[in-house]
Computed example of a mutant assay.
Amino acid sequence: MDIENINELDRIPDEIVGKVETSVINTFASIIGEEPNYVKEENGEGPLNGIIGNVTVFNSEHTLSLMLAIPKDTALYLSEVFIGMELPFESDDMGDLIGEVSNILAGDVAANVEKVGFRGQSSLPTATRGSDLTLFMPTKPPTEKMKFSTTNMDFWLTLVLSESN
């Protein structure tokens, strides 16, 4: 896998995307007891009314950003299955929950992408909650938007591969 000339890439290498997909399926299956399905989409979704968990897997040369976009109904469902009760969506606890889910996912991603030569550690997670949220990337680095679905929820993961600063 060659990511040395990242400025010349028009997409994230399939080896990385495949390992991230495996991590998402494994992580969410362990949390909710059901494997999410990766859904290939022609067109992306519109603005999100929900919460976004942000975390990165990075090394001195490259950063793989993970933005986990979770609609409000999915966040409420996740709180119920993860901690056994529905958290108020507007609570600080909901932000902590999505940050923790993002952190668990990043740990699995870091372990899996190491298998294809991307060795890194994960950052501390952050969460952003709101309505009409739209993610814009300022410099157009290689990006992959992935949708996942189960019988009870949908969510998206946006990956961005960039040079570390």
Results as ranks from 00 to 15, higher is better:
N26Q: 13
P141Q: 03
E100S: 08
V116Q: 12
N37G: 07
L76M: 10
T22A: 11
L124G: 07
E144C: 05
N112R: 08
G95E: 15
S149Q: 05
G33Y: 10
S164A: 15
I83R: 05
D14A: 15
F155C: 06
L135A: 10
D132Q: 15
V116M: 06
P142E: 04
S79E: 02
N43G: 07
E144R: 15
N49W: 06
F155L: 09
I12H: 11
G53F: 06
E35F: 05
I83C: 08
V160G: 00
L9T: 06
L159Q: 01
G53P: 02
E42L: 07
D92R: 14
G120C: 14
L159S: 01
F118G: 02
V101S: 00
E42Y: 08
E144M: 10
L135Y: 08
L161T: 03
A29P: 01
S23G: 14
N7K: 09
P88T: 09
V160H: 01
P125N: 13
K19G: 01
L97C: 12
E34I: 14
P141V: 03
V55S: 00
D73Y: 13
L124Q: 11
P47Y: 07
P13S: 13
D10H: 09
D2S: 13
S65R: 10
L161Y: 04
T151I: 09
D73K: 14
S65Y: 14
V113L: 09
S131E: 12
N49V: 11
P142K: 03
G130V: 09
G99A: 13
I52S: 00
V113P: 02
S65K: 12
E15A: 11
G46W: 04
G46H: 03
S79T: 05
G130R: 06
A29G: 04
T158I: 08
M85R: 14
V116C: 11
K40F: 10
N54D: 08
T143R: 03
I51Q: 00
L157N: 02
V160T: 07
G117R: 10
V81W: 06
A69D: 03
L157W: 01
G130N: 11
V160N: 01
E35Q: 07
P141I: 00
E86I: 13
H62T: 10
E90A: 12
G18W: 07
F89Y: 14
T22W: 13
P138K: 02
T63F: 14
G44Q: 06
V109Y: 05
E144D: 10
E61T: 09
V160M: 05
L76C: 00
F148A: 00
G84F: 15
V39S: 03
S91G: 08
D10A: 12
I6C: 07
L68F: 11
L161W: 04
S79D: 04
V113G: 04
N49H: 10
S122M: 10
M153S: 02
M67K: 07
E8C: 09
F148G: 02
G84D: 09
G84P: 10
V109R: 02
N43F: 13
P138I: 05
F155T: 02
S162A: 13
E41Q: 14
T139A: 06
S122F: 12
E8G: 04
V109Q: 04
I31R: 01
K72H: 02
I32G: 01
V113I: 15
D2W: 05
T63C: 15
T27Q: 01
F89N: 01
A106K: 01
P138S: 05
A127H: 10
F28N: 02
W156N: 09
G99P: 09
L66A: 05
